[in-house]
Amino acid sequence: MILPGSVKECVQALAEHGAAAKLVAGGTDLLPQLKNHLLKPGVVVDLSGVATLKKLTADKGLRIGAAVTARELERDGRLATGAYRGLAESGALVGSVQVRHLATVGGNICNAAPSADMIPPLLALDAEAVIAGPRGERRVPLRDFITGVRTTVLGADELLVELSVPDPGPHSGGAYLRHTPRRELDIAVVGVGSQVTLANGVCTKARIALAAVAPTPVHARAAERALEGQALTPQRIEEAAKLAVEAARPISDQRGSVEFRRHLVRVLTRRTLTTALARANGGQA
């Protein structure tokens, strides 16, 4: 096991060991995979000693280190209201407290499960992934980062270092909801993250991101466009919720049927938009 103390040392270790190396952050996805022998890395590179990856700065937008934990999103006072509240809500839903203290944002994104909870709010916030590799840093919009079920644009010699969230501006609100039979320790049947920004009573920007209804998290673009430039009345929100269903390409599995998932997209889109709107208006909902 390699124990780098900086991003640079990490990049060096990846360059040296190539595809044989596997990064571990919180280990909550990796350890079960190791134990089930789904994965046999030549060498594991531990990110827990890299302090810079654990920083969360809020100054005209957010810079979230890849190793910031779900628990930190849940409890950070700077995310407790308005635009970032949906992100905090997604962190609060991951696993149990024992898992949230370990589970990192970067691990959630790089594991790239269709049901990952912390991805929709970050997509809805137009986050950008900051990637480090042997040729320096590159930035990729999060919406282009995940390429399929458990696959990303990351090369074997690269790591995710940070999520960069642009300033959503005043009068912005966000919300995340998922449906699970059990509140804790369950996997989303459907998850929806919504963000809205208002100016003079009109919606200037709307983002709706869906989890667990396609191979990757997806934006409901038609629904977003239907809201922008409009006053967000309950009717418009309901229309957008209907449009959001069209972005979903769900499968039927033991957690839910296609019909049920489509229904959930509509309900959760309506609820998250309604809550995001209230928060954009300064409400504590």
């Binding site: 919180g26 280990g27 909550t28 024992q98 898992v99 203290h101």
Partner: peptide
């Protein structure tokens, strides 16, 4: 681990160094 409840079955021992 540093005062926070964690599932020790998911922590690699070396991460507790």
């Amino acid at each position: 681990l540093d005062g926070k409840a964690v599932a020790s079955c998911l922590v690699l021992a070396l991460q507790a160094r």
